[in-house]
């Protein structure tokens, strides 16, 4: 056989092996999470090597336990989910309100300091988050907003604005300028062009950017840990899960149910926005 034929055969087979292994490796932890969330802890301890749930062991008490408030003997994840939702939704809305005009300005208008703004945004991602965490902890404590959902939201907005401006700007640049020029000829102001032409045209990207911001805020852990650990009523889902996972009081399969509740909203949103999201994030990469 020629080298070409050998290589074609080897890579043809290797390709399928790689695909199968990758699918198993990426999906297995999620499968395991869901599997364990439906069994009582004794079953896990008795049969640690089981890869499915026999029907007689199937239970929903893990979910009841994890969702019920602490007053009712549960873990209060329903409350944590509400906190997470409040923070993530407000972050997404406020970030968009601030980032849309900014990305329009960076994409379309020439103004003093335009280049500096882009550099400033890049610089934000070069520093370890922990470096700003120290002063923010001290400063927010002094202002009295450290142990509150408001303080957390402010930090999340600042963290997500640069990436939102990047995603929106890349898209706005693809809208032909001629549309705006025509409106301008008819005497429309910048504000009117932005609200009545650009925003409707960019709506799909705006929605996917907003959902991406929601996902970042929902998943965030460090600042929730620094700011809110002291007050259980304010815990987000991520913080609640990590705090309870460290202890021995709550059984692991109950916390698996908590993990599923933390993960499912993200997977659903990701399923809805996958295409727009991947295109927004990689814009520019295909040009090399």
């Amino acid at each position: 056989m020629s080298r070409l034929a050998v290589e074609n055969r080897v890579f043809g087979t290797a390709r399928w092996v790689v695909i199968v292994v990758l699918v198993i490796v990426t999906l297995f932890p999620f499968y395991y999470m869901v599997e364990l969330s439906f069994v009582p802890i004794q079953d896990l301890l008795l049969n640690p090597d089981r890869l499915w749930v026999p029907i007689q062991d199937f239970t929903l008490t893990t979910y009841q336990n994890v969702l019920k408030s602490t007053a009712d003997g549960g873990q209060g994840f329903a409350g944590f989910m509400l906190n997470s939702a409040i923070v993530a939704v407000s972050t997404a809305i406020i970030t968009l309100v601030v980032a849309i005009p900014a990305s329009y300005a960076v994409a379309r208008l020439k103004f003093f300091g335009q280049r500096q703004v882009s550099t400033l945004f890049l610089a934000v991602y070069l520093f370890p988050v922990i470096i700003i965490a120290i002063p923010l902890f001290v400063g927010f404590s002094a202002l009295g907003i450290r142990e509150s959902l408001l303080g957390l939201t402010i930090v999340y907005i600042a963290q997500t604005i640069p990436v939102s401006v990047h995603m929106l700007r890349s898209y706005l640049k693809t809208i032909p300028v001629s549309i705006e020029e025509a409106a301008m000829m008819d005497g429309a102001s910048r504000t009117r062009i932005l609200t009545q032409i650009t925003i409707p045209l960019a709506m799909p990207t705006i929605v996917s950017t907003g959902l991406y911001v929601f996902m970042i805020a929902w998943n965030e852990f460090l600042f929730a840990l620094l700011f809110l650990t002291g007050d259980r009523n304010l815990w987000t889902v991520s913080l609640g899960l990590s705090q309870l996972a460290g202890g021995l009081e709550v059984s692991k399969t109950v916390l698996m149910a908590g993990s599923v509740l933390l993960t499912v909203p993200i997977i659903v949103l990701y399923g809805l926005t996958e295409r727009a999201l991947t295109e927004g994030l990689t814009s520019g990469a295909e040009k090399g």
Binding site: V98, A99, P101, A102, Y104, A105, V106, L109, K110, F111, F112, G113, Q114, V117, L120, F121, V124, F127, I131, I132, I134, P135, L136, V138, G139, I154, V155, I157, A158, Q159, I161, P162, V165, R190
Partner: peptide, 27 residues
């Protein structure tokens, strides 16, 4: 345009300055 651009970008810059640059210097 320059004035409009600055106005539109200002809130973003203020937030990033307040939450990143000021803490960096303070740190």
């Amino acid at each position: 345009d320059s004035r409009a651009g600055l106005t539109m970008v200002l809130p973003t810059v203020i937030i990033v300055l307040a939450i990143f640059i000021v803490p960096l210097i303070w740190n």
